[in-house]
Structure formats: structure tokens, C-alpha cells
Design a protein around this nucleic acid. Sequence first.
DNA 1: GGGTATTATTTTGAAATCGAAATTACTGTC
DNA 2: GACAGTAATTTCGATTTCAAAATAATACCC
Lengths: 406, 406
Amino acid sequence: MPRRIKSKHQHVASLEAELLRRVRAHGGLSRVQLARDLKLAPSTAGIYVDRLVRAGFLIETENTGRETAGRPPTSLVPNPDGGRFIGVDFEARNLMATVVDFSQKPLRQVHKTLRPTDSAAQILAKIEEAIDEMTARDSRPVLGIGVGVPGAIDPVTNVAVHYDFIKGWSDVPLGARLGARFGVPVFLENNIRSMALAELWFGAGRGLRNFVCIGIRSGIAAGVVVNGHLLHGAQHRAGEIGHWVCPVPPELADGTPPRRNSEWRWQAGARLEQVASLSAIEAAAQRGLERKQETALADVKGEPTIDDVLAAAHNGDSFALSLVRAVGRVHGWVAHQVNELFNPEKIIFAGPLADLGDLFLAPVRETARELGDAGRDLAIVNSKLGQYNGAVGAAALALHQWKPKR
Amino acid sequence: MPRRIKSKHQHVASLEAELLRRVRAHGGLSRVQLARDLKLAPSTAGIYVDRLVRAGFLIETENTGRETAGRPPTSLVPNPDGGRFIGVDFEARNLMATVVDFSQKPLRQVHKTLRPTDSAAQILAKIEEAIDEMTARDSRPVLGIGVGVPGAIDPVTNVAVHYDFIKGWSDVPLGARLGARFGVPVFLENNIRSMALAELWFGAGRGLRNFVCIGIRSGIAAGVVVNGHLLHGAQHRAGEIGHWVCPVPPELADGTPPRRNSEWRWQAGARLEQVASLSAIEAAAQRGLERKQETALADVKGEPTIDDVLAAAHNGDSFALSLVRAVGRVHGWVAHQVNELFNPEKIIFAGPLADLGDLFLAPVRETARELGDAGRDLAIVNSKLGQYNGAVGAAALALHQWKPKR
DNA sequence: GGGTATTATTTTGAAATCGAAATTACTGTC
DNA sequence: GACAGTAATTTCGATTTCAAAATAATACCC
């Protein structure tokens, strides 16, 4: 007569889920290592592992040749055929989806382009379409769906509350809708937070207890991990640093070059999102062209897109580079402020800008270091997880919440 | 053969301690209420309560007349004679100490003035002196000491790591020293964080899970409560918003009145601590006098102290008021930034400035609201706990960590 | 004044988890 | 190739905590 409504690890979905999580995060652990990791008695870990092996979710692997004395450990790995999970991540312009196996390995991914004019209904349809495409011709069961949603969400009711950049996007019952359509549990999370989860579980944040992930796309937001847990805030609105009131480097204010790196301006009400996001860069590039600025971007037909600007910067175009550097300095200021307030071990930048690497990160680091000597202990890096970062994080969200039925 | 090395509530000192905490925070709870609060089975709560009653730490009180049906609950209150705890809180200029009984009621308090020239050794001596004064002629045992320390601390080794405003204050083994002298456990915490604890346990933060406490004294720092727990950061350096790079209102930059409320300036590297702390106000007042500014402060002999400025503002002196308002606007900006990042339920300002009430809070609120419409859900208030806020919090720190010996 | 509804607490037996003591499966050594 | 050394796992009670049922103490209604 199993009961298990509460457990010692109350803050945790269940001990089984926690064990699976550890095994996935750090494949090939032994019972004893798991016990140590989760602070369980070895006997307890043994009981649960056996249960999961018998249920077919874990596999005992061959103990490969070892050198040390003592009884060799039996390594445990997740059974890839334990089930599949789906992750979706989107914002104003792009929708990424992925399906992962039980060991968290991506099996397939799908990208769809969204238009700013797409309505909430159209976006919902595209989400369902993407999921259908990925699960077609594969009969293994889907166990859960995770969705990284832009803007505010309510993780209790699984409703997407609001997002500025999609019209009509408010109080969308995403959880109920997808749950009804696919018949599996659906988990919602704000998409920068699901990126942070991806970093925590298999990215630059692995093993860290305190870090901040800053996503720069149409908007700018931060996913904060405190003590190994996501920060949500009172109304699940934490991390909206896009609304921060920030200083503006001259290049971004009126296009004049700065006299010193530290020469910035203050504009009443300048928001980070309007100063240092991808759309802000596009706008600044366009202003530059109108000013007859000498740049390779002048050859682009139509208004230059963010991809044009980043490509130009990559090719050494000095105007494009000056924009990237100016935005980098702003984010250096952001990193400084975030560091002083949170004292994280690491700040991880994600998005196309961060994908430029040191071209973007150098001015960020330089400025952060200039502003605060406390930055010594702080690593500023970019996300290495690539475009599907958020989608994989969303899949992991579902994966990690899921627990075997009894 | 009691053992109890681990318990279900692993993140918690012990169940006994947790129960005492709840009873102290919300006197007169019944066994059932405690069970609900701590998510225990009623039977479990009963076992522990009985144990604490038998050990003399809790007292069952008369069930006062009630109106509702059903068996009346037996209320439990802490036994005031269970033992005493000491709390100390200091920064560059003041040292406050208090001794509280087992139910957390302050029995006695002591204030000492520190001079900026005091060395670390002199301050240590004053701490011991304050404790001696309070415990003289009272034989009830002291069970623990909590200290709110300015600057960085290491809560594991109980060493005060560093503080800018006291010379020679680095790596002071405060815990070991006081422990040896008084023979009881000593707990260290950064003093803004111990203020935040005081607010959490019996101030404006009671019952909240997410709030930020901003202390404005010689420096400026924030104590952040996330999910009911203090935020420490990777190196226990979280909350140092005094190092934030911030905009500067004209009044504080060069004394000219602003054309609009939103007209601020950006000075390369202006730190919040140099712009909007008590010492910054003194400096700005002094600059005003040198400019022959018309103000009641001109009558003060010597350089005006912060008390002079605050008193003048209180009496309606327009120059002093303009300083307070300008500083208020800066903290409005701070509140906005903090709100967007953390999404707390409340921001609590502490310190002499906040004690002015709406004189200070009105410009804070106004600016925060101007900058962010998200501020609708956010309450901005001042601390009502008074001068001994930090000391009481420090005492509570010791009180809450303490648990009955078995 | 006795029944009934209602809520608090205690009793009871079971599940989860533990710590310590076997037991197992190796490596290395003579 | 027996034997000591070592580390992983299992076995075996013991302890903590639970859930559900039983009991206690009241208010309310007739």
C-alpha cells in the first residue's frame, strides 16, 4: 500500500525524480555516489535505484576496467527508451522546438519563423504544428511537454499572462490547450528562465549554485539562479532588466564617438531594452545610415537586419563594430550592477550578440572590471548551448518534473 | 538512544528549533496550527511540542474563551525564562546591543558611539563592554550571541572579512573571540542582512516570502529575502548596491535645481554610496554652505552633521528638503531597478533617512512609479523597528539557530 | 439536559529513511 | 593462488514521520 504523499525531501518532486535528474546530469553514477550527492544513506539510494532499474528507467552498465582497489561500482545510466519529452521555446521572431529522449539527448529539432504580426492563435497553431512534425513516425510515447514562453507566466495555472511583443498575447491558457491536444503534462516557464535552467543542468552553470543568465533578443531579461533554484519573484516577474533605466553611450544616443570609454550620457527614461537589445541595434544602424555613416551596411538592400549588422561586425566593419562595442559597454554596466546585487559566480550571456564571442564579451568584461573591482571572482561568459538552448531547457523542465507513476 | 543527525527537514537546524521559531513569530499557536504551518502530521507536531513543554521551553496557556465549535486548542507560548540571547549591531559610527528573553522580548539595550578612528581592537573591546553591561546583575544563562557586522563576513568560519569604513577591519575572528570570552555559540551576519531578518521575523516583512530591505547609513546595502531565505551570494557579498553606478540629480551633482524631476545627470563612475548615503548628504550640505546657499544650516557651528540636515528638513528648511528629495529620487531609481530584477512584494527602507517618513518616501515612491508601471504591486515603506532593528535581528539570529540539547 | 456537529489532540500501526554491521567483488602482494 | 586491503552494496534493526482512526472537549440546537 504505497502512500508517499510527503517525503523527507519535501522541496523535491520525489526521490525517484531527483535520482533520475542526477543520473542524467552526470551520467554513469554509482549507488554510493548518488547517496553522497543527495545526502541519503547508501541503503536508501540502493532501494530507489533498484526500483528504477526494475521499472526500466535506469540501466546498470558494465563496470569498465578500473585501477583502484575495492569492489567496483555499478554505473547507472538512464534508459534512452524510457520515454520522450518535448521542449518548445519562442519569442517574437523565432520558434524552436526539440524532442529529447529519456537520457536528455536531442533526437530532432524544428525551427519556425514567426512574424511580428502573428496573432496568439497563429502562434499556438505553429507550436502544435512543430510538435506534430517532430513526433510524426515515432511511436515511442511522449511523457511531457515543456514550453519556454516570452513574458510573464503563471506556473500554477500554466497560463501565459502577458508579452509586449506579440499582439493579443495575454492570459493564453497554453498549459490547458496543449495538455488537451497531446494528453500529457505541460510545464510553462518564462523563456529566459528556461534558458537559465538549460545552463544550470548542462551548460556553463553546471555545478554552480549562484549565477545569472542574461538573454539578449527582441527584449532583454535575466534568469537568476540562487542557491541552485530559479528566482521567480512575488508575481513571477523577476528578471525584467529590460525595463532597467540605464546610461547610454554616445554612439547609441546620437552617433558621436565617445571621448573616453567612461563617457556615457543619461537620458531621462532610457530603457535597457531600447538601448541595448537586438532591435535597438537595428534602429541605431538605421539611424547611422540616415546620417550617411560610412559602412558596409550601406550596401544592404532595405533596412539592415540584426543579422546584417552582426555579419558586418564579424567582417570588421568599423561602424558595426562600434555599435557592438557600445552595446557591450552597456551590458558591462549591467553585469556590474547584477554582480554587486547578487554576487553570482558567473554571468552568462545568451543570444546572437553573445554568439559573436569576444567581439561582444571583451567590452562587457572591460567595462565591468572598470566599474567594480569586486568583479575579480566573477566570470563573464557566453552560452555555448546554441540556438536550441531555450528549447532544450524547456524539455528538461518537463523531464525533471516528471516522475514515474507508482 | 537518540540520534537525529539528519531529519526530514534537512535544510533546517532541527524540528524543535523550527517549532520554537514559529511559536515566537506568532505567539499562542496550537499544535494543529503548528502542524499546518510546518507541513507536519498533527501527531508529529504533538510529539515535538510535548518534548519542548517537558523540557521547559514552551508553556501551555489557558485556552481563553472562544466562540467556535469544536474542542478548543491549547495555545503554546515560549517560556520567557528559557534563556537569554544577545544581539549586537554596529557600523562605522554606532554600536547597538540588546538582550532578549527566550520569547524574543528585549530586556535591556545599550548604545555606544564609535569614532571613525577606532581600531578593530577598540571596537572589539566596546562590544564586550556592551555585553558585560547588559548581562551584569542577571544570573539567567545566556544561550547565544548574534552579531550584525558591517561589510563582508564568512558565516562558516564566523570571521568578519572586510569593511571599508573601519581601519584594520579585515579577517577579524569575531566568532572565535566572543565565543572564547562568553562561552556560548556566536553567529555572525552582515548587518543589513540581520536587519532584513528582523523585518522578516517581526517587522514589515512578516509573512512575506520576497522582499528587499535597503539600509542607508554610512554606506548603502540591501538585504534580500528570496522565498523566505536570505540571499548571500557566492562569496557572501550579495546586496552591495552601494557600489552601483547610478545617475545623479543636479542638486547632488552641482547644486543647481533640476528643470524637470526626470532631469538627471550621468557622471562617470558615480557610486550610489557617494551620491545618496548619509555621508553624501553631509558632503552636499557642506558644498551648499560653501556656495553661500541660503539655509538654516548656516547657523550650525562647524560642518553640519546628518542630524542637523535631517532636523532642518523636518523643520521645513528648503535647502535641506531639496537634498532629501534629491536623494529620495535616487532611491526611487534604486527601487525601480530592484523591483524589475527581483519582483519583491515590498521594499523596506531603513536608517535615519527612512525614519523621516513621507518626507523621504514620497519622492522615492513618485520616482519609482514614474519609471515603472510594474510598481503597482510593490509597496515601498520604511522600517518601523527603530534604531535597535539590527541588534534585535542579530539576537534573533542566535535565537533561531539555537536548539535544545538532547 | 441530551444529542449533534465540530475541531483539537492522541493513539495506532505502517512507510520512509537511517546508521551500523555484514557481505560482496574486486586489486595487489607474497 | 591464498590472504590482506579496500570500496560498493546489502542486510538488518531502529528511528522518524506519516495517515487514518479514535478520543476529547467544546458550542449549538432542541
